[in-house]
């Protein structure tokens, strides 16, 4: 097993004890293998255990049970070996020193991460060019936009040219322009050009769908499903989804009479409520669903679409990726 150059987990467990008998199994028997050069996604809502898993892999936490091998090194037996092979992007823009400039930040992390002094200047120049930050190299980080800070965080992650990257929620809180830049960068530069092994966590289904070769659904500390995005979507028993976009508050109780006809997914995003009903015959449900929504909210649009990863996630876990609303 130590031969793997990617990542391999076997029955990994991390438990947080709150009180004497009250414990949270943040990572609960997780096993999977990420091949060298693979872009692997871990998709789950907030609190699913994704960040805890990343912290176990980056040796910030010690697992309670199981094994984790990163680049051929065991996280328990050889944490320094693991950290030499890892670039960890976590904490977003706060993972930088805001009073320092990009060059000062990268110089510091280059020394900390063991980049030879003779290569540091050239490496920093390359990374600033790569992230389109060269013109900002002497600006204090606090004066950069959130998107630029995130780009600099990525440069910081790459400063020692690690073969394996752990990327935790890379586009969280970014505007669409920077989110698009970062997604494209991960896909084309890090994955296709530089051939990095990447474990990416996100709760954005589009991001996972667009970027990842394989995706694991994580919920309540467990892996609920693991496959390619295409094959995950094939797991839906229904092939179509009726979607109603509206403004107003709706709870799943309103749809209690409809549960037998398909999987309901209620979610909120950008101030809108989305009612998605996975079903084999959306036309049959159209009037009933719209009527229920109309009683409680203002309908903006109605459409029939293919199942998304979110629909599959709801189908498999009964939970939404976007918020805490309940599903059936």
């Amino acid at each position: 097993m130590l031969q793997t150059r990617g990542i391999e987990l076997k029955n990994l467990v991390k438990v947080f004890k709150k009180k004497k008998k009250d414990e949270v199994r943040a990572v609960d028997g997780v096993s999977f293998r990420i091949a060298e050069g693979e872009l692997f996604g871990l998709l789950g809502p907030n609190g699913a255990g994704k960040t805890t898993l990343i912290k176990c892999l980056s040796t910030l936490l010690i697992p309670d049970d199981g094994t984790a091998i990163v680049g051929g090194c065991d996280v328990n037996a050889d944490p320094l070996g693991v950290r030499r092979k890892l670039g960890v992007l976590t904490g977003g823009e706060r993972s930088l020193y805001w009073k320092l400039t990009p060059v000062e930040n990268l110089n510091y992390f280059a020394a900390l991460y063991g980049v030879p002094r003779s290569e540091t200047k050239e490496r920093i120049h390359y990374l600033l060019e790569l992230m389109d930050l060269f013109d900002k190299k002497h600006e204090r980080v606090e004066r950069l936009s959130s998107g630029m800070k995130q780009k600099l965080s990525i440069a910081r992650t790459l400063v020692h040219d690690p073969p394996i990257l752990l990327i935790d929620e890379p586009t969280l809180g970014l505007d669409p322009y920077f989110a698009r830049f970062i997604r494209t960068f991960i896909k084309t530069e890090l994955h296709e050009q530089l051939k990095k092994t990447i474990l990416l966590t996100t709760h954005y289904m589009d991001e996972a769908d667009e970027l990842c070769e394989r995706i694991a659904f994580m919920y309540n500390g467990k892996i609920k499903a693991l496959d390619t995005p295409h094959l995950l979507k094939k797991r839906m028993p229904q092939e179509q989804v009726l979607e109603v976009k509206c403004v107003g508050d709706i709870d799943d109780q309103a749809f209690s009479s409809m549960h037998e006809y398909g999987t309901l997914n209620l979610s909120k995003q950008d101030g809108f409520t989305y009612v998605r009903m996975s079903t084999e015959n959306p036309e049959d449900l159209l009037s009933g669903v719209v009527e229920i929504v109309r009683d409680r909210a203002r309908v903006l649009s109605v459409s029939v679409t293919s199942p998304t990863l979110e629909d599959v996630f709801v189908h498999l876990t009964g939970a939404s990726l976007k918020d805490d609303t309940t599903q059936q």
Partner: peptide
């Protein structure tokens, strides 16, 4: 407080 502790602790030094 800076928010950099995890990043510093993930570096390959004791």
């Amino acid at each position: 407080w800076y928010g950099t502790l995890d990043t510093v602790f993930a570096a390959p030094v004791p």
